[in-house]
Every structure is written in structure tokens, then in C-alpha cells.
Write a protein that binds this DNA or RNA. Structure first.
Lengths: 309, 309
DNA sequence: TCCATTCGTGCATTATACGCACTAGTAAAA
DNA sequence: TTTTACTAGTGCGTATAATGCACGAATGGA
């Protein structure tokens, strides 16, 4: 039974004519006749009495019409309601992001986003674990480093450049590593994030890659905590510019290999990504968030913005 | 959009699995997958998030489910309601019948019919005109003589034998016709019913048919009135046994051509018929009425019943 | 690492829908 | 009374949609 057949039935009831409805729909009258006959077969009752020039409803037809007409309208309201939820930049946007990154780079942007879309509310899930978007009903996630999920849409927000650095205090007391291999003998503080390993890779200007196993007295997924310990002289860290950019700038942390590209993952991976379940039928609330972040990160990531203070 | 697809959607929502629903319906899972995908296309939104091993509803899917589930139930109630009206031996049965015939042969049967089906009520339309069943919303009509309607189902209730007769008073004062042709010179009282004409036809034992134009001082559609005037000696009548049978039996009317078959229509037509709009999906209330009358008329029409008094 | 399960897709086959031509019937106009 | 215009129904051929099957990719659990 087609909804279209029900709509046809309702129209025929209103018009009292198959032919008239057929003309309006640009179809052959036999199609209307057959649709109604099929509907009658499926229902097991006669909706219309037919003579060659006249059509009138049976009692059953009238009863069915009275009940079906509001049903058709309700069905369309159901669809509109569902579309509303998927399209309107409103409802609750559930965002997952690494704790430190969110605190520093997302949270400060939320007031402006909320002001721009007053009907949006936000459910922030700040965690350094990689949540399952489907299972946790996350609308959009911020991810760093290599992506392991599939079946999701990933859009790159910003490149992520990392630096190996230590505090002046650490260098005074422990010495400064002169080559990548020296790192093996130093205290290195490790970032326990998905995709990040205890083997740091350094690539020099000629493209030679050195991979160094590192270890040390600390391992954590919280980037801010890692930085605090490094600032206190506890060890050497490899972290992204978004978190150590300012300290390298003001000298509280020293870039130990300024001529190298460094990473704790793959050289192709270091970026900040936005992840969402599907490009098809993307809820508008997700769309606007993605667009907003891309707008903010477009020219320079926030940690490179000179006006940031 | 198929109602079946909506039902499938509701089931998938409840089960959280295409494959599970497919197994229960004995179809291939790809059919379920496609049905849902088609529904999503038609709605313009995503109802489910899919990963290879997990399925979960979108927010829009949940909203749609909440609204569609009661709609499906309501649709079935609409059908049941309509079926009720067409099937239950209850509601109002609208009967059309010629006035005299109904008064004498139908009305006396109604008390028994009503007692047998207490939920039935009757709307009797006694008229000698041929009502349009469709236009007048008549459920079943009693008709005599030839049928002119088409697109209706006719079922024969009883043969209708006619007689040409007059009162003894008329014969004393006007004389008795000796041959069919003599009728031209007599005062004939005409029955103005559909299908009955002012040309009476008589067929003798050899099959010879004589058609005689007749005229007289009275023309009416009311069979009882016609008989009363004949009894009063006003003229000769051609009427069915159901109305003159008793009077011929007790001698108050004389059969003028006992060896002939007579009719004011066609010889093939003289019957009492039940007429209704359609054999398909016949409302039960009509069915029980037709069956009841057939039962009562089966062995002998009421006017031949010896117990009738 | 392997196995069982899920959803998605291409392909061939089967079923269904549709337009067209035509029929039968009928009301209205000529 | 005849003709015309209109209605709904049906057969037939063609186009379109639905379906099962086979297979692939992905994933969770053992």
C-alpha cells in the first residue's frame, strides 16, 4: 500500500472523479482507477460505487476517508519534524574533543558560536580517549594525530606542527641533547594519546629520518599537565605548537631541534581533524559548527594568532 | 513511499538491526537495507547511522519513529473501522421497493428480520419510481419487471405471473372479452410502473403472441389502488398474482384469459428481483437481507402461501 | 590472527506500474 | 431520436522497480 495511493484516494473523495484527479496529476485515468482498485483489494472492501458516469463513496469509503485524511497530514508533519531536527541549527550539538585542546582552542570560541546561533546548545565531551561517535551519539569530534576510525567523514582543520623542547632549568641541570640519538639518554615526558608512540621521529633538512625510542618519568594524555611538568624541569617533551608555541616564544621552553621536523606519529598525520558520521544528510547544527571552526582556523590557527592574549 | 517500508522502519528501530528484521520476514537483508535507504531518500534525511557492525538511530530517526509508530496503528484502525461498516450485520440497511409490493410482502417480514439481527435498522424507501441506487445510497432494491439498470447485481427472487382480470360487476355491465383483440374496446386500468407499457401481450398454448394496445380511465403506479378500482368495476386490469391472487381465488375478480400467459412487458422479464451495487465486498447487512428474503420466497412466494391470512 | 556477523553494492531475474488503445455505458445537446 | 462528449475498466506491450544472490569491507569477540 502506497502513501501516494492514500493521497489519491483522499483527492478522489474530494473530487468525486477519477478522471479529474488524473488530469491534475498528468497521468492516465486508468492509473487512478487501478490505484484505487489495488487499494480496495488490499483493504478488502469497496471504497467507491461506480457507474459509467458517476462515482460515489460507499459507507465504508466515507468512514475510511474520515480517518485517513488526518493520517496523511500527520505523516507529513512527522517528516517535517524530523527534517527540522536534522536541518535547523538548533538542538544540542554533542562535541567530543581532547581536553587540553578544547580548553585552549575550542572553549574560547563557544561564546561567539552560541551568540551566532542562539538556538544551539552544546554538550562538550572533553576526553583524551577516542570515543565511538556512533555509540556515544557524538555529532562531531575533534581529533589529533592519525585517524583510526572508518566510516566517518574527516575534514582537516589545521596542520599540527610539533616541537621537542625543554625548560632552561632542565638544560642547566641535565645538559642539552646535541643529536637526535642523545634523546635516548634523557628524561622524556610522554603524551599518551591515540596514535602517539614512545618512538619519536626527527627529519632533518636533507630528509633523513631518525627514529628514537624514548622514555622518562611521566606519561599522560593531558597535554596541559605534560607542559606544566616540562616547564618545571622534569623532562623533555614533544608537543604540538598549539600548546607550547607561546612558551617557546617567551623562552620558558627551548626548542631543542629547531632545524628538524618532529613527530611521535607519522609525518603525514600531524593535523587537527574534525570527524562526523556522514556527509549525507549532515545535520545543520554540525554543518554550522564545522564551518565556524574552519573560518576561525583558516588563516592561522589560534595559537599562531598574534592578537591572542 | 510504502506503508510496508514504514512498518519495516518501525521494526528496525525496535530491533536495532536490519539483518534481524530480514530473518523474521524471510527476506534478504539487502532488501531491508534498500527499503530504509529508499525511505531516507524520500524523506530527505538520515534515519540511521551505520557502521559495519552497529546501527543506531539519528536524532531525526528517533523523532520520526515517535510520530510514525502511532500513525501505523491508526492506519490499521481506519481499515478495521471501514471493514466493520461493510461487514457487520449492523448499521442502517437502506431498502427501496415498490410501495404495494413492500406493504404486502416485505413489511410483514421485517419484524422477524429485525429480531434475528438486533443490530440492524432499516430505512425503507417505498416508491414506485426506479431510484438510482448509487445516487440515493440505496443498499438493496426490490424491482419488478424488466431491469434497465446496468452495473448492478440482480438476483431473482421469484417469478412473477400476471393475470388479466375484472370484477363480476364489470363483466355484468360491460360484457366479457372473448379474444385478446376484444381488449381494445374495453376499459383497461393501467399500471404505470417502469418497464410496463400500454401494450398488453398474450401468448396462447401454441405460443402465438398477440399484442394489444389498451387504454382506459385510470393510470397509476400504485398496484393496490389499481386493484381497488378494478374490484369496484371500473375496468379490466393486468396485474401480478401477488396482488390479485387472493381475489381471483375468492371470485371477487375473474381471470379473463386463464389459458394464456399475459404480460405488459416482456415474457422473459416477469420476475421479482433484488438489486444491489456490487457482488464484490458486499456489505454483510445486505448479504443477510438477500439471504433472508430468498429463504422466505424459496418454496412459494408469500402470495401463494396457504398459511397466509 | 581468525571467525562470524553486519551493512552495502553490482548484476541478473522477476514483478509491477504505466501509457495507449479500445470498449461499454450514459447524460446532455442537437 | 441521434449524436457527442465523458466516464471507468481492461488488454497489451514497454519501462521501471524490486528482489535474491554473490561478494566485499569492516568490526567485535574468541
Amino acid at each position: 500500500m502506497e502513501i501516494a495511493a492514500l493521497r489519491t484516494f483522499v483527492e478522489v473523495m474530494r473530487r468525486g472523479s477519477f478522471a479529474s484527479v488524473a488530469r491534475d496529476h498528468g497521468v492516465d485515468p486508468s492509473s487512478i482507477s487501478r490505484a484505487i482498485a489495488t487499494l480496495e483489494d488490499e483493504l478488502g472492501l469497496r471504497l467507491f460505487q461506480r457507474t459509467t458516469r458517476r462515482l460515489s463513496a460507499t459507507e465504508a469509503g466515507l468512514v475510511y476517508f474520515d480517518r485517513v485524511e488526518p493520517i496523511i497530514a500527520e505523516l507529513e508533519r512527522a517528516r517535517l519534524r524530523a527534517v527540522d531536527v536534522s536541518e535547523a541549527p538548533r538542538g544540542t550539538l554533542r562535541i567530543a574533543a581532547p581536553v587540553s585542546f578544547a580548553q585552549l582552542n575550542i572553549v574560547p570560541l563557544l561564546p561567539e558560536l552560541a551568540a551566532r546561533y542562539p538556538d544551539l546548545s552544546f554538550d562538550l565531551r572533553l576526553t583524551d580517549a577516542a570515543l565511538d561517535l556512533v555509540e556515544e551519539h557524538i555529532d562531531v569530534a575533534v581529533r589529533m594525530g592519525p585517524l583510526r576510525e572508518s566510516g566517518l567523514v574527516a575534514t582537516r582543520l589545521s596542520p599540527m606542527v610539533s616541537k621537542i623542547c625543554a625548560s632552561p632549568l632542565y638544560i642547566e641541570t641535565q645538559g642539552r641533547p646535541q643529536s637526535p640519538r642523545d634523546l635516548e639518554k634523557h628524561k622524556c615526558l610522554l603524551l599518551a594519546m591515540p596514535g602517539f608512540s614512545a618512538r619519536w621521529r626527527l627529519r632533518d633538512r636533507e630528509g633523513n629520518v631518525t627514529e628514537v625510542p624514548v622514555q622518562g618519568p611521566l606519561r599522560t594524555s593531558n597535554a596541559i599537565a605534560l607542559k606544566q611538568c616540562a616547564l618545571a624541569g622534569m623532562g623533555i617533551i614533544l608537543q604540538a605548537r598549539w600548546i607550547v608555541g607561546r612558551e617557546i616564544g617567551d623562552g620558558s621552553l627551548i626548542d631543542l631541534f629547531p632545524a628538524h621536523e618532529v613527530t611521535a606519529a607519522d609525518f603525514e598525520a600531524p593535523a587537527v581533524w574534525l570527524l562526523y558520521p556522514s556527509r549525507a544528510y549532515l545535520p545543520l547544527k554540525v554543518r554550522v559548527f564545522v564551518d565556524f571552526l574552519k573560518e576561525k582556523f583558516q588563516n592561522a590557527p589560534p595559537w599562531d594568532a598574534p592578537t591572542r592574549q
